[in-house]
Design a protein around this nucleic acid. Structure first.
Length: 316
DNA sequence: TAAGCGTGGCG
DNA sequence: TCGCCAAGCTT
């Protein structure tokens, strides 16, 4: 775990990652307290219940990519009630997935989830695949989501490295406030080095370390008094020094194409019939940017242009 | 590798 | 108020 501002001299291997651990922060001394804390304090989330199943876990992971739990909850419940199996979603028009996505944001995720459901129906007999490589081949599933579904839905042993876990490791092991902007090879190797050998313990550790980052070791206003590994935390031991170096990449939004795309798609989500061009023109007054945003939505497959100049969510 | 991609709540 | 942040993926 290297501070964001310092270059990594050489790519360390797993042994180096282990050697880099503080003497009092070996995997064994972290697993037990974090898992015990999780057993006592984990949130009761619907996708963690036994009846959620692999499809429920997968749907939740798509929705939780960059969207907070509180906003996912109601949409998740409606989604699973309407499409309880991948094949149920695959039968629908992709535009219905985009509509049901509502205001979760990043609506391309809805399209990709529909595409993943179609691929599961065609290639995997309707069952969410259990192998990491098969999951990774589905649209919208990357390194994190493949590991998360394999671990949470199937109890497998994978390093599940999301933003919460990365922050916990950066602090507890690396002694810095924040992890690097992009996931590094050193982080992956550290995560593998810290993974419990036992499969069941590994999957519990994955969920527990994520939850710790989400509830206690948060980006702002961390609550070290409630942390089960505060005594072993390198960042706390160092006096919790503030992040050094350039600001982390910010997300601009106001005035961008993304904002225009959002407004255009909101109109189409609410409409039951194809929408005339004039209705879309009202959402943004600058015509060049407006046209560019609409073209982008069409190119992404989120919007379908009709021959008569109307637009709708995609039927195919 | 870095930019692009939504939306809303919070400090 | 407004910048930061939220279980990332794709190109």
């Amino acid at each position: 775990m290297t501070a964001p501002t310092k270059p990594t001299p050489t790519a360390p291997d797993a042994a180096d990652a282990r050697d880099g651990l503080a003497a009092d922060a070996s995997g064994e001394t972290l697993h037990t307290p974090v898992i015990a804390w999780f057993d006592a304090h984990a949130r009761d989330l619907p996708w963690r219940r036994p009846d959620a199943g692999p499809w429920g876990v997968m749907v939740s992971e798509f929705m939780l990519q960059q969207t907070p739990v509180s906003r996912v909850l109601p949409v998740y419940e409606q989604w699973l009630a309407r499409w309880p199996r991948p094949a149920d979603l695959a039968k629908e028009a992709p535009g219905e997935a985009v509509r049901a996505w509502g205001r979760l944001g990043y609506p391309r995720r809805a399209l990709r989830l529909h595409g993943a459901a179609t691929a599961i129906t065609e290639r995997h007999g309707g069952d969410v695949p259990a192998h990491h490589s098969q999951l990774l081949a589905l649209p919208g599933i990357g390194e994190y989501t493949a590991a998360a579904v394999a671990s949470f839905a199937y109890g497998q042993r994978h390093a599940v490295l999301d933003t919460n876990v990365r922050r916990v490791f950066a602090r507890a092991v690396g002694g810095v406030q924040y992890p690097p902007n992009a996931t590094t090879a050193a982080e992956r190797k550290l995560a593998r080095a810290l993974l419990p050998d036992d499969e069941r313990t590994a999957s519990r550790w994955a969920a527990a370390s994520m939850e710790l980052g989400a509830l206690v070791c948060t980006a702002r206003n961390e609550d070290c008094a409630k942390c089960p590994i505060a005594a072993q935390c390198a960042w706390r031991a160092a006096g919790k020094p503030a992040h050094e170096g350039p600001a982390r990449r910010g997300q601009t939004y106001a005035g961008t194409d993304r904002q225009v795309r959002g407004k255009l798609l909101a109109v189409l989500r609410e409409a039951v019939a194809p929408v005339p061009q004039a209705a879309l023109d009202r959402v943004w007054d600058e015509p060049v940017q407006r046209a560019r945003a609409l073209d982008g939505l069409v190119a992404d497959g989120l919007v379908e242009p009709l021959a008569d100049g109307h637009y709708r969510l995609p039927l195919t």
